[in-house]
Write a protein that binds this DNA or RNA. Sequence first.
DNA 1: TAGATGTTTAGACAAATATCTAATTATATC
DNA 2: GATATAATTAGATATTTGTCTAAACATCTA
Lengths: 90, 90
Amino acid sequence: MNALFKALNDPTRRAILELLRQQPRTAGEIAEHFQFSKPTISHHLDLLRQAELVTSDKQGQFVTYTLNMTVMDELLGWLLQFKPGNDTNA
Amino acid sequence: MNALFKALNDPTRRAILELLRQQPRTAGEIAEHFQFSKPTISHHLDLLRQAELVTSDKQGQFVTYTLNMTVMDELLGWLLQFKPGNDTNA
DNA sequence: TAGATGTTTAGACAAATATCTAATTATATC
DNA sequence: GATATAATTAGATATTTGTCTAAACATCTA
């Protein structure tokens, strides 16, 4: 849960997630969308991977990043605990 | 959105939210649940208030904090954009 | 094998963050 | 008014974070 909130606490990382919402992309393609250096984007991708918000797959020189929604579902569950009438974790 | 994710990116602040899920509490009551100093808790409460995750109400010497779910709904909306088949912000 | 391309690692640094103690403000009560 | 209680503000400090450049690693192709 910590890694998840940490990963989400950055506008660039959230923008990366929104990019990947459309389709998987390589590290270089992702970097093109931002003004930061490639190492910086690589670091952001690392944090997203640590939080399991993305998966990475290396094909030759290219590393393709794909959105992984299963962790988002965990966050969804955490959120719903606050919804009135929901007694989960009561 | 930034203030929201920032506020959520701390286990103590998330625990405070979970405490307030049961009922509103004063700053002192909240502080009793943790091992940190009162100023530290006061600071966490300030960040939660900045994110509008809680509201505060002063009655005499006491300041009562109450959970505010409306911002959580915003987060919920952000999350749902990632759900397949959801074309919001497409 | 050499060079080009894609990506990550290493190391440095400024800015932000979480924490503390001491001091201050606000209210209640004697 | 003086003192006690509730809470916040101020200032200090160690840690974490986001960014950069330079270097290294991995793969492809001529």
